[in-house]
């Protein structure tokens, strides 16, 4: 700290930004832990197939493994875009 500190740019409080970003990513990665390794790959390939026919976002495909009693259920959900966007789609090839 010196006499001319006031001339320096006011520091941004980036620690709180770091904390918030970490909180979100760490929580997300913790839920992904313990699920089979193939899920992200499966999701990516499904997305590619679906995209051949429907123009969906990356977020539109959800692949989860749900525990039901003593067996696991692979839960795949795809949310389709609304009508307007659907019409603007290129023909499936």
């Amino acid at each position: 700290m010196g006499l001319f500190d006031f001339l320096r740019a006011k520091p941004k409080h980036t620690a709180s930004i770091a904390k918030e970003r970490l909180r979100i990513i760490v929580a997300q990665e913790r839920t992904a832990r313990g699920t089979p390794d193939y899920l992200p790959m499966l999701r990516r390939e499904l997305l590619e197939v679906i995209r051949k026919y429907v123009n969906v976002d990356f977020e539109a495909v959800k692949v989860d493994l749900i525990k039901e009693g003593d067996h696991d259920v692979l839960d795949i959900s795809v949310s389709l875009p609304d009508k307007g966007q659907l019409n603007a789609m290129p023909a499936a090839g």
Binding site: P11, K12, H13, A15, S16, A18, K19, L22, R23, V26
Partner: peptide, 17 residues
């Protein structure tokens, strides 16, 4: 740097981990 808001504090890291 923690005091000036530039660095994660002990408490921050403890909370996250």
């Amino acid at each position: 740097r923690v005091e000036s808001g530039d660095m994660l504090s002990i408490k921050d890291v403890q909370e996250i981990l």
